[in-house]
Amino acid sequence: MHIPDNYLSPSTCAVMSAAMVPVWVVSVKKVKKGITKTNIPILGIGAAFSFLLMMLNIPLPGGTTGHAVGGTLLAILSGPYAACISVSIALLIQALLFGDGGILAFGANCFNMAFILPFLGYFIYKFIKDRIPTEKGELFGILIGSYVGLNMAALSTAIIFGIQPILFKNPEGIPLYSPYPLSVSIPAMTIPHLLVAGVVEALFTAAIFSFIKKVSPGMIYQGREQKTKAVYALIVLLICLTPLGLLATGTAWGEWGVDEIKDVISGGNQPLGFTPQGMENGFTFNSILPDYTLSGLPDIAAYILSAVAGTSIFLILFKVIAAFKKETFDKNSKLPSE
């Protein structure tokens, strides 16, 4: 579910980040108020847990990945606000240190996995649990909550992906970012999540929850009785947010009027696989630096650029080979501790 950078337009990223800011602010405030100082480390552990869970991912068509997140589990254990912070941190570490998920797309990734998932999952769990106050009701709530939470997050990711080719293309109609429309992105994202990742998430959440409840019941978050209103409010908010994001990205970009979008959408239904002949500068991509020149740059500049690139690549190759040799040489001294 991690969206890499450059798959989304910068304006989409900006809108998603802007949507996350109030969520983060409220979460930090709630957590600061509701948690004792000694319980703060639990958030860190939650983040580490979620991180490890997200490492077990499978690549999906559409440029993204499928995996469990553990967001609902964290929300049940330490409250949705704490879960929001934990998952955000896990995503930040992945983006910063492991190149998994983009920096600009960080807001969008958080929106899906650190906002929609834990809050929706938690509210559904709480809603069911408060209605069916038995052991079975609770388990049912956990399964449904985590399953729906993950799948809604996947759907939201698919929508964000799918609106890219509708909203952002160059004058020739070629998409500038992720090129797959909703008709491709939604099935590509949701089917594997409905069938595999969601099931994994639900079973995992239920299993760990039951274990912790048995062994250390004091660890489970005691949220207030969930009001029905809150769930409805959240659902309404979610429904509102999606088209809002769409509209906001459109206006922020400033290229598409409301009437234009119609044409754009019909354009989006064209079969994929257009050729780049219509491109402004008309350069082909057969060779990246054809004849050491780049259109848009003076020849001398392009030449120097090529030279620097060549030298750098040689240096890199040389150092990598040296590192390989060294690695086999002192493999023993480099073994990680047990």
């Binding site: 930090v28 703060i40 860190g44 991180f51 934990s86 941190i89």
Partner: peptide
């Protein structure tokens, strides 16, 4: 609180 959680998470991963 964000930095602290980040810090602990990194150490515990």
């Amino acid at each position: 609180i964000f930095i602290l959680v980040l810090d602990i998470a990194i150490k515990y991963i």
